[in-house]
């Protein structure tokens, strides 16, 4: 029973012709590729970085993001949990990341 292994046809590298037209992402509203804002990314990476099994609690988050208001941290947390990036663990103040892998 010979399996016929067909090599995949040569991949044609896709050129990037109109790079100049891409427009620059100027301004302070920088949005990284994953569709999250800077604040949301900061919150997410802090939660990801937490080694504790119960996750990072809101208090720690607040302490490490002193440039952000409690309301904006809450907002980011809400958004992230709505999107499924994080979830609450032992109580509503502890969060863990799903995409920690």
């Amino acid at each position: 029973n010979k399996s016929h292994n067909q090599p995949s046809a040569g991949r044609v590298p896709i050129g990037n012709p109109g790079m100049g037209e891409a427009g620059n992402f100027g301004g302070n509203n920088f949005m990284p590729a994953n569709g999250l804002t800077v604040a949301q990314n900061q919150v997410l990476s802090l939660i990801k970085a937490c080694p504790r099994p119960e996750g990072l609690n809101f208090h720690d988050l607040k302490n490490q993001l002193q440039h952000m208001t409690v309301a904006s941290i809450k907002q980011a947390v809400d958004f992230l949990s709505n999107e499924g990036h994080i979830y609450s663990t032992v109580d509503d103040d502890h969060f863990k990341s799903t995409d920690a892998e």
């Binding site: 949990s81 709505n82 999107e83 499924g84 990036h85 994080i86 979830y87 609450s88 663990t89 032992v90 863990k96 799903t98 995409d99």
Partner: peptide, 20 residues
């Protein structure tokens, strides 16, 4: 603990739904 598992499962489902 059940709650955590459930939250995690729900979060993963949401994430999966976003990625469809």
């Amino acid at each position: 603990l059940v709650r955590i598992q459930r939250n995690k499962a729900a979060a993963l489902l949401r994430l999966a739904a976003r990625n469809v």
